[in-house]
Structure formats: C-alpha cells, structure tokens
Design a protein around this nucleic acid. Structure first.
Length: 369
DNA sequence: CTAATTTGACCACG
DNA sequence: CGTGGTCAAATTAG
C-alpha cells in the first residue's frame, strides 16, 4: 500500500511541479523585467501564449487534485476490500484548452432531431474493466443509444448522466466490449459531471477481478436545442473515481489509430483543428501533455516527428491491491486489450529522449512488480 | 404509473 | 455516401 501511494504521490508531485513551472513561465512573460527563472521550457514550447500557459496550469492543477482524490479513494476502497482490483488507467489529456464553455451557440433549427454535435474533446479518459465486474463508477447513467461499430464485434452503448436534464450534467460515457476479450469492457468517459450525485466515489470501483481503466474526459459543449445554457461549468474536483493503480498509455498516430486494439489509442485529435488555431499549440500537445503531465515535469519531448509516436506506459501502484502487483501486470499483459507485453520496453524509448528528474510511476512500477 | 431501455431514424462530419 | 453519435417513439422494467 505504501508503494502504491508513493506512485501516486509522484504523479501528484509531477503535476504540481509542472504547474509551478508553468506559472513561473507565465509570470516571466507577464513581467519580463523581473527575473523568475523559468527553467527551460520543458513542457511548454518556448512560445506558449499566456492563454495557453494558463490553460495548462489549470489543467495541471486539476489533475493534481484528481490524483489526490484518487489516492484518497483508493485508500478507502482498499481498506474495504483489499482484494484484488487492479485498475489500469491512463490519463490522456488533451488539448490545453480548458474552458471555452458556454456553448450555447446557434441552435439553428434543424428538424427535431439531433442538433449540432459537440465534437470537441479536450481531455479523455478511457476505462477498461472486466465485464464481470462492471463496476459502477459511482454515477448513474442512462442509456440513450447503441451502435454497431465498424470493425468491432460488439456494439457500443452510449450513456449519459441520468441527471442531464435535471442538473444539466453533460457527462456521457461509451461502453463497448473488447473484441479480444469479451470480458473486458472499454469505457470511454466524455465530459465531466457537473451534477452532484451522492454515491459516486464511495462506491466506485469494486471489482472482484481486474479492472482496467483509462479515462477519457472531454468537454464538448454545444448543447442541443436551446435548453441549456444554465450549465455552469464548474468542475468539481472530485469527478474522477478511483482509477489509478495502473496505467497504460498508448499513443499512436492518427493514421493508425484504428489499427490497434481497444486499449487506448489516442491520436492527437482535435487539437489543431478547431480552436487551437492561433496560439501555437503543437499538434501533439495532447500527447506531450499526457506524458509529461502524468509523469515528470521536465518532460519535453520534442515529439519528434508527429508520426508514429507510440508510447506505452504502465504503472502499478496506487493502492488497490497490495499483493497483486505482479499478477496485475501479468493480467494486463495477457489481456488482449493490453498491448504488448513489455511496457517498459516501450517506454524506454521515451526515456532515451527525456531525462526524468524525478522518478515517476514507471520506476515504481517496476518495484511493484 | 413513471423511469429506463431498446431501436431505427436522423444528422454532422470526413 | 459511410460512419459514429444522438434523438425519440415504442417497449420493457420497476
């Protein structure tokens, strides 16, 4: 348990350090005269606009908060059932833009169906978990659709927050069985809950078996009809549930994105497409953010080419099962959904180009193993 | 009865 | 035009 906590702490520290760095940088940009050494711009491309920096800072802080919450949750659940429940997660974070809310926009009258689609994904959280466990994430969802997905054996189910109409909560999630392993569900969370649901965290995640989690958090806006503006976009810090024991991240280029399994393939999406525009947000900001945000502060990957970026990262830790570390990994590896078997190997290439100054989860992972 | 799910149609996007 | 996401009427569950 300690180790797991440690893993998390590292992550939190990383986030905070990154936040600090970003803040310094912003400061130096705002007040060029004074000198607050902003280190190299690791994560930030040396040319981020103030706006971008602020967004990143916000994002970083949110993550740190989420991690802390995670730790807390894990602690609880662990206490409750120290059994095995591993969770596998990865944070992929998307574009730095954080707010931009207030969609409202035009609701031109289209027929009565489907208005405009949100289509904006900032952060993503995806979650894989075993079917048998189909754990609750603590929120109540209402299914609103199901669709067969091309190339997938199983249909994808669409859920929205039960309190959508009542509280204007726009959170949604998509659940789909893994092609490879029907026992595994891939869950993609989109948007964050703005509703207040009693249960959540507490009951979150309790799986007798393994749970893989990746989370995808998006914020799309655009409401439909005219309903909505009331949504106040405030993001309660707690939103996330207890994922965290393990992380698996896989990033690959858009072009190949569908080649892979269900695991987590994130392409660098929307980012440069719509709004990023002016500011210089590199296409891979998403990836970079993820990597560096989740791990180390001074992590700037030149991201080299924008193609074929592929990272796989796993970490155990976080708390959930104390004794299962080893088996966890095994599971992961063997699970069809999980990618290859040597996360570490994959990760190595990153290590090569980056130097970490803090040991993050990865390192711990090995220990856990 | 109300609430949730099912399911085919609708729609935006590429 | 195909695909994925959403709507909403019909159906089922509580």
């Amino acid at each position: 348990m300690e180790e797991s906590t440690k893993c998390e702490q590292v992550g939190v520290i990383g986030e905070l350090m990154l936040g600090e760095e970003l803040t310094k940088k912003l400061y130096s940009q705002l007040f060029p005269s004074s000198s607050v050494s902003s280190s190299s711009s690791s994560s930030t491309s040396s040319r981020d606009t103030n706006e971008v920096l602020i967004e990143k800072i916000i994002s970083t802080m949110e993550k740190a908060i989420a991690m802390v919450n995670c730790m807390a949750n894990v602690g609880e659940s662990k206490a409750k059932n120290g059994s095995m429940m591993d969770s596998h997660c990865s944070f992929i974070n998307g574009s730095p833009k954080s707010e931009v809310m207030e969609p409202e926009v035009e609701h031109r009258d289209v027929s009565k169906k489907r208005k405009t689609m949100p289509r904006r994904r900032d952060q993503v959280k995806v979650c894989l978990e075993t079917a048998e466990g189909t754990k609750e994430d603590g929120y109540s969802w209402r299914k609103y659709g199901q669709k067969d997905i091309l190339g997938a054996k199983f249909p994808r189910a669409y859920y929205r927050c039960t309190y959508r109409n009542i509280q204007g909560c726009l959170a949604t999630k998509q659940v789909q069985k893994s092609d490879e392993d029907p026992m595994v569900n891939e869950i993609t969370y989109i948007g964050r809950h703005t509703c207040t649901q009693a249960s959540h965290l507490s009951k979150a995640v309790v799986s007798p078996s393994k749970t893989k989690t990746v989370i995808e958090e998006n914020q799309h806006q655009t409401n439909q009809k005219n309903q909505p503006q009331q949504e106040k976009i405030e993001h309660p810090p707690e939103k996330i549930f207890s994922f965290g024991s393990q992380v698996e991240v896989k990033v690959e280029d858009l072009d190949h994105k569908q080649g892979i399994f269900p695991s987590f393939c994130f392409s660098s999406p929307s980012i440069g497409s719509e709004n990023e525009d002016n500011s210089n947000i590199f296409p891979y900001s998403m990836i970079e953010n993820n990597l560096m945000e989740s791990f180390s502060p001074a992590f700037i990957s030149p991201t080299t080419s924008e193609s074929d970026m592929f990272c796989h990262w796993e970490s155990t830790g976080l708390g959930q099962s104390v004794h299962s570390s080893t088996s966890d990994i095994t599971d992961i590896v063997s699970t069809p959904t999980s990618v290859t078997n040597s996360p570490i190997m994959d990760f190595d290439f990153l290590l090569d180009k980056i130097d970490f100054d803090i040991d993050f989860p990865m390192a711990t992972t090995e220990l856990c193993t």
